[in-house]
């Protein structure tokens, strides 16, 4: 094995591009087989990258296998951190709510004038606006495309989805009403109430989904929003859209942004 000093000299020459073409090729060949040499080179690069302020750090794929990376990842996944993260999110929502509320009074006078001025117009346009809500609803409603778990599940789930497709909504309600429902079941239950025009009941079910600890509890916002959109309750629809767009991870985040834009047009 070569001496440490020689190895360093070689690495330095390699990094400074001072090797002949031949030597460079030889060196690269050695790199492929010699773990020790590779580690040594990586440390040199890492030092240059990290300590040189003008360089932007590049990461290597091996960074994703690195011990610290794995440890940190596990920590972030731990219950403690999940809870800490949740608290930050809740507080963040609270903060934005308060901030938006504070912005209101300044604009209130403007709103009152604007509302007064457009009221006459609105009355004339109301029929038109309603159709606009209806068009949006038609474009975005996903009642016939509920999340399916059919590929990996038990008979119960398959039954529920089949009933739903057959429009046997009361059967679904009978089946699920008296049991502890999971996310999937809550969605089908809420959707069934909706299909039977029992909007209030449906909203109750989706509220239950929102309040649950499920990772995809944000689906509840989406379905609730659809119900209000269908009922042409623009105010409530907008409120829910605002909630959905507060977090990118929320279900149908992108679609919610689209709807907000279209409602403004």
């Amino acid at each position: 094995m070569k001496k440490q000093k020689e190895i360093h000299q070689e690495i330095e020459a390699y990094l400074q591009n001072e090797m002949s073409k031949n030597n460079r090729a030889l060196f690269e060949k050695r790199l492929k087989n010699d773990v020790h040499l590779r580690d040594e080179l990586n440390l040199h690069i890492s030092l240059n990258n990290t300590l040189n302020k003008e360089q932007t750090t590049t990461f290597k794929e091996s960074d994703l296998e690195n011990a610290t990376f794995k440890e940190t990842k596990a920590l972030l996944k731990s219950e403690t951190f999940q809870n800490i993260s949740k608290n930050i999110n809740t507080t963040s929502n609270q903060y934005f709510k308060e901030r938006n509320r504070k912005k209101m009074p300044k604009k209130r006078l403007y709103y009152i004038t604007a509302i007064a001025a457009t009221l006459v117009l609105l009355i004339g346009l109301s029929t038109f606006l309603n159709t606009s809500n209806t068009t949006l609803y038609k474009e975005y409603n996903t009642w016939n495309d509920l999340p399916s778990k059919i590929e990996k599940s038990d008979n119960q789930t398959i039954n529920i989805e089949t009933y739903y497709n057959k429009k046997a909504y009361t059967k679904i309600i009978d089946l699920l009403i008296d049991k502890e429902q999971n996310t999937h079941e809550l969605i089908y239950l809420g959707a069934s109430y909706f299909q039977l025009n029992k909007y209030k009941k449906a909203i109750e079910i989706f509220d239950k989904l929102i309040a649950s600890n499920a990772i995809d509890n944000s689906k509840g916002y989406w379905y609730k929003m659809l119900i209000y959109l269908k009922q042409k309750d623009t105010q409530k629809t907008k409120e829910l859209l605002a909630t959905i767009t507060q977090n990118k991870q929320n279900y149908n985040y992108q679609k919610a942004i689209e709807i907000i834009k279209k409602l403004e047009d």
Partner: peptide, 19 residues
Amino acid sequence: KTKLIKLIKLDCRYNKLRQ
């Protein structure tokens, strides 16, 4: 640089942080 690299490698944290 050689000295610095030596110091880094002697520290047990090196193994956990290396690229």
